[in-house]
C-alpha cells in the first residue's frame, strides 16, 4: 500500500508488528544455525545456549500476539491491512514452532554429545538444516518486500528437504543394522531430521500464508509433499548399501 494512513499511530502499530515479525525470523534462523553448528562441533555449551535462547523467542511471539490483538480491537483494520495483521499473527506461530523444534534439536545434541554416542554420518542432516535456513531467510525477505514469486519458490523448495529426509532415513536404518550400539545415537539423529523436516513444512505454510496476504487468494493446488519415510521398511536380509 502506497499511501499513508490518516491515523499516524495506525502506521506506527503496523510498522512495529512487521518489525517484530522480522526480528523473530532473524532470531529463528540464528537459532537453527547455532543448533546445527553445535551438532557438528559437538559443542554442548552452544547447544545449551540455543535451548535458553528459545525463551526469548517465546517472549517475542507473546509481544507480537498482544500487539496484533490490540490492532484488531482498536483499529479494526480492513482489506490488505486486515490480511497483514491476521497472517503476521498466524505466521509468527509457525516461527515459534520452528523455534521449539530447534530447541529440541539442541537438547538432543546435548544428550548424544554427553553420552559420546556414535551417530553415523550426519552430512545429510546438516544439508537439510542448511536448506531450511535458506528457506527461512528467503521467506523473511519475501515478507519484507511483499514478493509473492519468492514465496511461491520457497514453498516449492520444501520438497528438497523431504527428499533429503528420505535419504537420511535409509542411511540411518542401514547404519543401525550394522551395529546395535549405533541405535541410540542414530535414533536421535532421526528425530532431529524429523524436526528439520517439520521446520520445512512450517516455512512452507508461512509461504502459503504470505501468498494469501499479498494477493487475497490462497494458492491453488496442493503443495507436492515428498516425505516418504512413513512408508519405508528396510528388509534386513536385503539391504542395499
Amino acid at each position: 500500500m502506497s499511501d499513508d494512513h490518516i491515523v499516524t499511530s495506525f502506521d506506527e502499530d503496523m510498522s512495529r508488528l512487521e518489525a517484530l515479525f522480522l526480528e523473530m525470523g532473524e532470531m529463528v534462523a540464528e537459532q537453527l544455525k547455532a543448533a546445527t553448528r553445535a551438532l557438528r562441533k559437538e559443542d554442548r555449551v552452544l547447544a545449551k545456549q540455543v535451548v535458553k535462547g528459545d525463551r526469548q523467542l517465546n517472549k517475542m511471539e507473546a509481544e507480537l500476539n498482544d500487539l496484533a490483538i490490540k490492532i484488531l480491537a482498536l483499529r479494526q483494520p480492513f482489506a490488505g491491512d486486515l490480511r497483514k495483521v491476521v497472517i503476521t499473527l498466524k505466521s509468527a506461530g509457525h516461527l515459534e514452532r520452528i523455534g521449539d523444534l530447534t530447541r529440541n534439536m539442541a537438547q538432543r545434541t546435548n544428550t548424544i554429545t554427553k553420552a559420546e554416542a556414535d551417530t553415523g554420518p550426519i552430512d545429510t542432516l546438516i544439508r537439510m538444516s542448511e536448506i531450511v535456513q535458506d528457506m527461512i531467510g528467503s521467506i523473511m525477505r519475501a515478507y519484507r518486500t511483499g514478493d509473492t514469486e519468492l514465496a511461491t519458490l520457497v514453498r516449492a523448495l520444501d520438497q528438497s528437504v523431504d527428499t533429503s529426509h528420505n535419504a537420511l532415513f535409509r542411511e540411518m536404518l542401514t547404519y543401525m543394522m550394522e551395529d546395535l550400539r549405533n541405535i541410540s545415537g542414530c535414533m536421535h539423529v532421526m528425530f532431529m531430521a524429523k524436526n528439520i523436516e517439520r521446520m520445512g513444512d512450517n516455512v512452507a505454510d508461512i509461504a502459503k500464508e504470505l501468498i494469501y496476504m499479498n494477493t487475497g487468494d490462497w494458492p491453488e493446488g496442493k503443495r507436492v509433499k515428498s516425505d516418504k519415510t512413513s512408508k519405508m521398511i528396510l528388509d534386513p536380509d536385503n539391504v542395499e548399501t
Binding site: D3, F78, A79
Partner: peptide, 19 residues
C-alpha cells in the same frame, strides 16, 4: 469488499487512506 477489494481506491478508502 472488506477482505479483498479489487480496486485500489476501495482498498485505500476502507483501510482509512482516503477520506
Amino acid at each position: 469488499i472488506f477482505t479483498n477489494p479489487a480496486q485500489e481506491r476501495t482498498q485505500n478508502y476502507i483501510s482509512g487512506r482516503i477520506g
